[in-house]
Design a protein around this nucleic acid. Structure first.
Lengths: 145, 145
DNA sequence: TATTGTTATACTCTATAACTATA
DNA sequence: TATAGTTATAGAGTATAACAATA
């Protein structure tokens, strides 16, 4: 007999978040693999494109990466001419990362495809539920507990 | 000037799901690291405990892992005496995985701690929103698009 | 002393293909 | 021929600690 306190994995928030994400990422992965860019690098590019010149600690936080991982990705993205690092003039420990024109072009090209994917999903799930889900996820990120 | 078609990363479903998950996993990771069990193995154990004797393809699907990764984890979990693999008597290509008493004990012990973590979160987020979020994630997993 | 970022290292997981055994 | 699982292998990311430079 099952323990009553046993939450099923469907009702486990971390597992449900992961399964949902895997589901949603399927077509995105297909898109990214065609251009040879990893999921993680794609997040870095989007964060940098969104936040403008931004320091690495912030990128790591927003893109859910550790700093040592980020360092290597930035080196690679910089070699590919998609991002640039410039030393901060005020606090010289920092460097600010910004997107190049080539990087911006790449982001926007893929974002077009990505938008198409998520428009389909939005319709399948219902606009109301889709928005509600994003609202709840946003709330979850900021809640203190 | 920003492109209007540019969704911010807050409203990107994959990124929002990831950030939410990272947020939620923080205390769970702390708990797991104390017992030296990886996140992935923890998912495998929970899935097997939940689904009883179950074939590996199903575990891989439910725990969001690839079969080759799962194979190695099962070997390790079997060595540790937490799971067992028994050949399927009907279809001999398959093997059924089941949890041992030691495995069940480990799962339930950690599940107790995990429940405490998520009860706190449920209260912080509000029971209604918490349930709504799980419902939407479940819906997302089954939607066709 | 604390913080920003880098380097080093070991390890784990991912991804793909090739393979075995069975259906 | 197709499927279940294993093995091999390359590569990428994770996690920790130690380090350099700067604050």
């Amino acid at each position: 007999m099952k323990d009553k306190s046993m939450r099923t994995t469907d009702r486990s928030l971390p597992i449900a978040l992961l399964r949902a994400r895997e589901r949603v990422m399927e077509p995105v992965r297909e898109m990214l693999s065609r251009s040879g860019i990893s999921e993680q690098k794609w997040r870095v590019l989007r964060v940098v494109e969104e936040l403008g010149p931004v320091e690495q600690t912030v990128i790591a936080d927003k893109a859910c990466l550790l700093l040592p991982s980020l360092t290597r990705m930035l080196q690679s993205l910089e070699r590919d001419g998609l991002l640039e690092r410039v030393a901060d003039t005020v606090d010289r420990r920092k460097s600010n990362v910004l997107i190049t024109e080539a990087g911006r072009a790449l982001v926007h090209e893929h974002l077009g495809q990505s938008n198409a994917i998520f428009e389909r999903l939005e319709n399948a799930l219902g606009k109301r539920d889709y928005r509600e889900l994003l609202d709840l996820l946003e709330k979850l990120q900021t809640v203190k507990y």
